[in-house]
Write a protein that binds this DNA or RNA. Structure first.
Lengths: 116, 116
DNA sequence: GTTTGACTTCGAGCACGCTCTAAGGGCGAC
DNA sequence: GTCGCCCTTAGAGCGTGCTCGAAGTCAAAC
């Protein structure tokens, strides 16, 4: 599929897709006869995974590291798993922090409701 | 108290405290005889509140807007409350999103555990 | 055959939120 | 008095993650 189609389906812009490829976050996507990028379903799955890592706050640098390990082969599976586990803990901690902040916010809003 | 002490107690750097003052996020802090900033407890409370807004992802621009409203007086209380309520919804949505991402991550980690 | 439009690469530019530097002032310790 | 240190202001610089622009290619539409 074309870069526009991949952009539409991944929710990323075509600019961003090219950028991700440039920095090695996605492998060199197949090119068709014209030299245009030709994405397939597996590319989209990988993009969806990346998007989830991004949305949970993983840095581009760490995602690149993960992508490198993946390309390096099966012997890096354990290190990848450890990366994900460490990241998982960060996400859990972030949720806990936000949950605390949310109740502080609720408290503050309540005082506004009472005084106005 | 000195800027260093305020930095230590707020968890922000002295650079950041000056920056916040410059952009109007905190009012012009009192100066002592030497022209040095002299923070008081209310300044610290305000910084703690700002820090909480920041940590929940409110932009500096929105925090400035809130600070402006606060300085404008009691008649802006309702608008401030509405700002906080809108922000509250964003935070709640973010927690929901992260919670979903967390289980996706857990699922991925589980597949790693099973295949290695 | 030329216009349109989507694609290519590569590098510059931008928004955000700091973070640091330069240049200078003032005070205490020696 | 001079060294050291912390403060001041104003403005430049930086890291991150895009986002955009320039210059050029190619194929289909008219």
């Amino acid at each position: 599929m074309t870069i526009q189609e991949a952009a539409r389906r991944s929710g990323l812009s075509a600019h961003t897709l090219r950028y991700y490829e440039r920095i090695g976050l996605i492998h060199a996507v197949d090119r068709n006869g014209r030299g245009h990028r030709d994405y397939d379903e597996r590319d989209l799955e990988w993009l969806a995974f990346l998007t989830r890592l991004r949305s949970t706050g993983m840095s581009i640098a760490d995602m690149c590291r993960y992508a490198q390990l993946l390309r390096a082969g099966a012997h890096t599976a354990e290190e990848r798993r450890r990366m994900l586990e460490r990241h998982r803990e960060k996400v859990a901690a972030r949720i806990a922090e936000l949950t605390q902040d949310l109740s502080a916010l609720d408290y503050k809003i309540k005082t506004y409701r009472e005084t106005t």
